[in-house]
Nucleic acid binder design. Structure first.
Lengths: 142, 142
DNA sequence: CGGGATCCACGCGGATACTG
DNA sequence: CAGTATCCGCGTGGATCCCG
């Protein structure tokens, strides 16, 4: 029920992550973890794809939809709304006819690209090892 | 239907993430994106918490459960199995009575801590901005 | 202690139709 | 074009019981 806190490993980014987490968790304030909220968004099915798409340049709604064919308009709208609400994306409406709407990353949104890119890099770099591990694991079960 | 590919932004980690993604997407091989699979895991509700818990030291099953009170044993087992299958976690059984099982990060699992810590750091660092953005956004709607 | 098996509720998200 | 509204299937995951 109470959501766990993911501690700030800021002061000791690498080795300190676990201790920072533990200290945070044991600290008084045990409800509502802001970091968890952010991580949930990252892990969201579409958020990262939209952010990466907008990293290149501003896009209109339909452009994003064409870039990510297997997202429904419903989910694209919802994802964009949440990103806008979080201050990651700026929505700009042009009173043309038919109306056009442009989405672009804010500076906050762009700042996310760096850690995101490193995570993607890690994934791409280690994916062969993961695949091998899976094959080995599955082989041991028939 | 066909899953999108998140391109390797390896060659140009920061600015190149979008172009790399686009080139990857436009390339021949359009089904099955390995990176998406990894990102889905990261975004998984429990995976990161378990990894962070194990970052401190090896833990027994019940220890992890105590560290993350709001995970069910079912989900903890499932999360640990997937991490084991992906070669991120090593499961070691000791034939004591009652039996004890120890989980520890593999080197692959530990290598994930670095990008993960940076993401957590970003989240902690920018969370106030996100909260402010949400308040401002919600205020504009009543 | 460390799980597996089963049942079931709920929310995510796709499909579809409609609007400004 | 850029959404909104409604309906609904299905997977995720909690609760519970059982086992070695």
């Amino acid at each position: 029920m109470t959501r766990l806190h993911v501690g700030n490993a800021l002061e000791a980014p690498l080795d300190g992550i676990a201790e920072g987490y533990r200290r945070w968790r044991e600290s008084a304030n045990t409800d509502q973890c802001p970091v968890r909220g952010v991580l949930d968004r990252i892990g969201d099915k579409w958020t990262t794809l939209v952010v990466i798409t907008l990293a290149e340049r501003p896009h209109r709604f339909s452009e994003i939809h064409r870039s990510i064919p297997d997202i429904s308009r419903r989910m694209l709208t919802q994802t964009l709304r949440e990103l806008e609400r979080d201050g990651m994306v700026l929505r700009q409406v042009f009173p043309t006819k038919p109306p056009s709407v442009e989405y672009r990353l804010t500076s906050l949104g762009e700042s996310l690209l760096k850690p995101l890119a490193e995570l993607v890099a890690w994934a791409a770099e280690n994916q062969p090892r993961i695949v091998n591990a899976r094959v080995a694991y599955d082989a041991g079960r028939g």
